[in-house]
């Protein structure tokens, strides 16, 4: 797997990416069992039996929660499907009333600078996190990009015979005109995030964006709703589908598959942070540390299809060897999306 970074933190990120090809160091880089056991004991001693996690597409992460709960009996993950403005409104209310209910915030990397500036995040350094590429570490150790969710064409196998789109160029096939669904390109959703990463990575150019807009993709309410419309056969292809969401639908029997693209796939960088004043801080620290541990990364790859950011994290099944991931995080992503909203987004209106 190759992480292709295009941020101001390029040099550091490349160094981090280099680390990822040194699997021999993997065991040293992560939190070990003793660290996790100590946190587990601390949580149990404090009577903390749950971790409230705010995150998008929470239902598709259930396999991850199930395994955590099996590894740490007595601690239950309570996920809430919330992100973006709704999450900010909820947190604002909780903080103002002095009763925070969230323990862990996991969302797109874009939300975290704002969460940090509003003072919602507690600085916390999980064991072994010193080896994480600096491109994945938030200000003052307040958040970490814990996994990269590959984004690519989600295909209804009942409607598309053969492979379907396997390159960015294939998405311009006139046969797909009017048969694709995606999230809004004019607000900060997975679709524009995927396209700005592909632009920065050189997989596509301005002419591609114009030609793709002319394919008239339908706009779904969100990633989950878009997945549903493809799984049900309303549309044949979701060009910017998060692999975790697709895998959740596939596990329930939906006739869908995911394609890796020749030029590389964009990703959704998911960050995680500890809520300041969290009601279950020890259990929350345990969960965050576990996400960044070899166990967490392995489960995320196996069950969700996402790629851990810690060095030596395994790749999901089906991902081609040395596959290129087009990654933008932090300031670089914010700047690229700002440019997108001011320019390319108009092509989709």
């Amino acid at each position: 797997m190759r992480h292709s970074f295009f941020s101001r933190r390029l040099t550091i990120a490349i160094a981090g990416a280099c680390l990822s090809v040194l699997p021999a160091m993997a065991g040293l880089a992560h939190a070990d069992d003793a660290d996790l056991k100590a946190l587990y004991e601390a949580a149990k001693s404090a009577g903390e039996d749950t971790v409230s996690v705010y995150m998008p597409a929470a239902a598709s992460n259930q396999p991850l929660f199930d395994i955590f709960q099996a590894e740490f009996p007595g601690i239950t993950i309570t996920p809430t499907d919330i992100f973006g403005a709704a999450m900010f409104a909820r947190l604002e209310a909780e903080v103002a009333t002095g009763k925070p209910q969230a323990d862990v915030l996991s969302s797109g990397d874009l939300d975290f600078p704002t969460l940090f500036s509003k003072g919602y995040l507690e600085s916390f350094a999980p064991a072994g996190v010193a080896d994480l590429s600096k491109g994945y570490v938030g200000t003052d150790n307040s958040w970490y990009v814990w996994t990269l969710v590959p984004v690519g064409p989600g295909i209804n196998t009942d409607m598309i015979s053969g492979d379907g789109p396997t390159s960015w160029a294939d998405l311009l096939d006139p046969a797909l005109k009017g048969k694709m669904a995606m999230t809004s390109a004019t607000t900060l959703t997975t679709s524009p995030m995927a396209m700005v990463q592909a632009l920065a990575g050189g997989a596509i150019d301005d002419a591609w964006i114009s030609a793709f807009a002319a394919q008239k993709p339908s706009i779904g309410k969100g990633t989950s709703a878009t997945m549903l419309s493809v799984a049900q056969g309303q549309f044949a292809v979701a060009p910017f589908m998060a692999l975790t969401v697709l895998n959740a639908a596939k596990a329930k029997g939906a006739p869908v598959k995911f394609n890796y693209l020749k030029e590389g796939n964009a990703v959704v960088p998911l960050s995680v942070g500890l809520m300041k004043g969290a009601p279950h801080p020890n259990a929350a620290k345990l969960f965050i540390s576990w996400l960044l541990s070899p166990s967490g990364a392995k489960i995320a790859a196996e069950k969700l299809g996402s790629v851990g950011t810690m060095p030596g994290s395994p790749e999901p099944e089906g991902m081609p060897a040395n596959h290129k991931l087009l990654v933008l995080t932090g300031d670089a992503m914010q700047a690229a999306l700002k440019d997108w909203v001011a320019g390319q987004a108009a092509k989709f209106e």
């Binding site: 705010y54 809430t80 499907d81 969230a102 989950s224 709703a225 997945m227």
Partner: peptide, 21 residues
């Protein structure tokens, strides 16, 4: 609503928003 206090309506709406009809 909050994380720990939902009604059937708010929770069903959240499930529908996730495509979990």
């Amino acid at each position: 609503q909050s994380t720990n206090s939902q009604t059937v309506a708010t929770y069903a709406f959240s499930l529908v928003s996730q495509g979990e009809y």
